[in-house]
Each structure stands twice: as C-alpha cells, then as structure tokens.
C-alpha cells in the first residue's frame, strides 16, 4: 500500500463520513473541511501542488467558512431529523446501488492507462500561461460569473425595505 494514496483516502472518507452523518450542522461542515483537506492531499499525490493549494485556500478557507457563517446567521438549530430511518436507508440503498454499479464499470473497463505522467511536465508556469492565453476567455468569463454571484448573493439576501404600515414583514424582523 502506498502512503501517498492511503493517507488522503483515509482522510477523505473519514471527513466525508462525518460530513454526511453528523446531525449537528457545524460538525458536518468541519467534516467537509477535513474531507477537502484529504482531497487536496489526493491532488498532491496526483502531481498537482497548485490545485491542491487552491483547493485548501478556496474550499476550506472560503466555502467552508461561508457555510459556518450561514449556519450561524440562520440561528443554527438543525431541523429535527424526522422520519429518520426509512429515509436514510432508502438514500443509502440508492447511493449504494450507484456505488456498486459504478465500481463494476470501473473495475471492468480498460482505460489503457500506462505509467503515470512525470510530474515535471505540469509546471505551474504552463498552467499560468494557458490560463491567460489559451483559456483567456473562459478565465475572464469565470471572473465575471464570480462577480455576478457575489452581487447576486447580496441582492438575494438583502432585506426589503420595511414600510412602517406593513405588518407582514414583522416576523422577518424578529427572525433576524
């Protein structure tokens, strides 16, 4: 067994298990963060340190933290997991079937994979050059998408200005 594979594997699986089973949502987010660190490790093992760094920076540093904020803003109390067992077992059955089917395909498929690539070939320089050259349009579009997402998020959560006579909005005020 290869430590470069097994360590990320263990971290990913443990983290993901926490993330999908903990009923306390904060714990689940922490599980997600752990799992994502594992994914970053897998990226490293696949010879791409740059994406690994980005994974940690954006996912763990950005998305997970935003989720924690959201949890705190929605006054945390996770909904009671009603009707638990049937629902969970059905979901587990579907996911398990999917896992089984996929595994069968992967095991039986012949990808013609040879030796892995020498890591020298994928330098950060190559990525940077391609990003600003060959994929320039996609890159710039993505920046636009991100900007729009930020503006959109602000617009969506912005509170409607409350008119004094308008009683309907009162509960929302309390909720915040």
């Amino acid at each position: 067994m290869n430590i470069a594979f097994t360590l990320p594997f263990a971290v990913i699986v443990i983290g993901a298990f926490l993330a999908v089973t903990r009923s306390n949502i904060l714990h689940a987010v922490f599980g997600l963060a752990i799992s994502l660190v594992g994914v970053a490790g897998a990226f490293l093992a696949l010879g791409s340190p740059f994406t690994a760094v980005m994974e940690v920076l954006i996912y763990v540093g950005g998305i997970a933290v935003t989720m924690i904020f959201a949890v705190m803003l929605s006054s945390v109390s996770s909904p009671a997991e009603r009707g638990g067992f049937l629902r969970k077992s059905l979901a587990a059955l579907v996911a398990g079937l999917f896992l089984a089917g996929g595994s069968l395909i992967i095991v039986n498929a012949d990808f013609g994979a040879g030796n892995h690539l020498s890591t020298d070939a994928w330098s950060i320089q190559a990525v940077g050059r391609d990003l600003l050259d060959r994929f320039n349009l996609a890159f710039e579009s993505l920046s636009l998408v991100l900007l729009l997402a930020i503006v959109g998020a602000i617009v969506i959560v912005r509170r409607e200005p409350v008119l004094p006579a308008d009683q309907d909005d009162a509960p929302e005020e309390e909720a915040a």
Binding site: A16, V20, V39, S78, P79, R82, A91, V94, A95, F98
Partner: peptide, 14 residues
C-alpha cells in the same frame, strides 16, 4: 466520495 455526497443530498433534511 461521490456516493457519500449523493447520500447526503438524498437523506439530509438540512
């Protein structure tokens, strides 16, 4: 990993 994510999507209330 995908299947675990799928389970979360299918099973969780939150």
């Amino acid at each position: 990993l995908f299947s675990m994510g799928l389970y979360a999507v299918l099973a969780r209330h939150n």
